[in-house]
């Protein structure tokens, strides 16, 4: 029983850290209607940025702020250079573009800054937190708390005037132009904010597994989270993250012994597959409203 509880709690915390990586995906989709397959590379790049700042001699808090500023600027740049020429084009072109960006950054950033794993110490001890019989990973605990805070902040953001405008833009680009909303600016802001969210994910995951290109493979669980939770729902990121984390921890916890390991990726793939077959818009995702 203690074993099950341990898998459950740690799985939930890991899941929340997946949510953190998935948050940028949802932020962009919810505010501009663009599926962002470069999210994994954004997380990796954010981790590299934070590591480079610490390496440069900045204290951790300053490094995080500097990385956030840098990633915000990078988000704006992506919109200006890559996405603006795509306005009015079919969405599949934007999907392929973000996928290309992901692949480019996966090669480019480690190529420039070094591909060997780099430690990113954020001052979290290695000793586990023990509650009753359950051992909890201290880094995951911090990550889970940060994830909850950032998810809550995003929910509040979409209730503000700016957030409402961004949601309007994701709903209908032409109608947004017609009432004077700048679609280009909305997309730029959403990429900037997603860049900032990537810093949270990048720093926490970087501290857990070191900073190298493998951070960008967080894209896979992140996509599972958004597909399960609903591609435009912040609530869905939270619930989807918990579900993907728990299932991806409990099931391998019992099956890996028989299957010889790596059943976690199988579970993640099955989550994506089953969600798309049974409920394509996810748990909380919006259905497209059609009136007859």
């Amino acid at each position: 029983m203690a074993y099950f509880l341990e898998l459950l709690v740690n799985g939930a915390l890991v899941g929340l850290m997946y949510s953190l990586a998935a948050l940028g995906f949802v932020l962009i989709y919810k505010s501009s209607g663009v599926p962002n397959l470069a999210q994994g590379a954004l997380v990796m790049m954010a981790a590299y940025a934070a590591w480079a700042m610490v390496d440069f001699g900045l204290p951790l808090w300053a490094a995080v702020i500097a990385a956030a500023a840098l990633m915000f600027a990078f988000g704006l740049l992506v919109e200006r250079v890559l996405l603006r020429p795509m306005v009015g084009q079919p969405v599949i072109m934007v999907v392929m573009l973000t996928l290309g960006l992901e692949i480019l950054l996966r090669g480019l950033v480690p190529g420039l800054l070094g591909a060997a794993p780099k430690p990113l110490d954020i001052g979290i001890g290695l000793a586990p937190v023990i509650v009753g019989d359950v051992f909890m990973n201290r880094a995951y605990l911090v990550g889970g708390v940060v994830a909850v805070v950032l998810i809550g902040a995003s929910m509040l953001f979409f209730r503000t005037r700016l957030g409402t405008k961004l949601r309007a833009v994701s709903d209908d680009h032409v109608a947004s132009w017609a009432v004077g909303l700048s679609v280009e600016r909305a997309i730029a802001i959403s990429w900037g904010i997603a860049g900032i969210a990537a810093v949270g994910a990048g720093v926490l995951w970087g501290s857990v597994q070191g900073v190298d290109w493998t951070l960008s493979s967080l894209l896979f669980p992140a996509v599972a989270v958004v597909i399960l939770g609903g591609i435009d729902s912040i609530k869905g990121v939270f619930v989807g993250g918990l579900a993907v984390g728990i299932l991806g921890s409990v099931i391998p916890g019992y099956l890996d012994a028989y299957a010889g390991g790596s059943t976690r990726d199988v579970v993640t793939s099955l989550i994506i597959l089953l969600t798309i077959m049974i409920r394509p818009y996810g748990i909380f995702g919006r259905e497209d409203i059609e009136r007859i």
């Binding site: 005037r161 409402t164 949601r167 309007a168 709903d171 109608a175 947004s176």
Partner: peptide, 12 residues
């Protein structure tokens, strides 16, 4: 804006 309430449509 179909996924927004009328109130939010006006805000946007």
């Amino acid at each position: 804006f179909g996924h927004l309430t009328p109130d939010e449509n006006l805000v946007a």
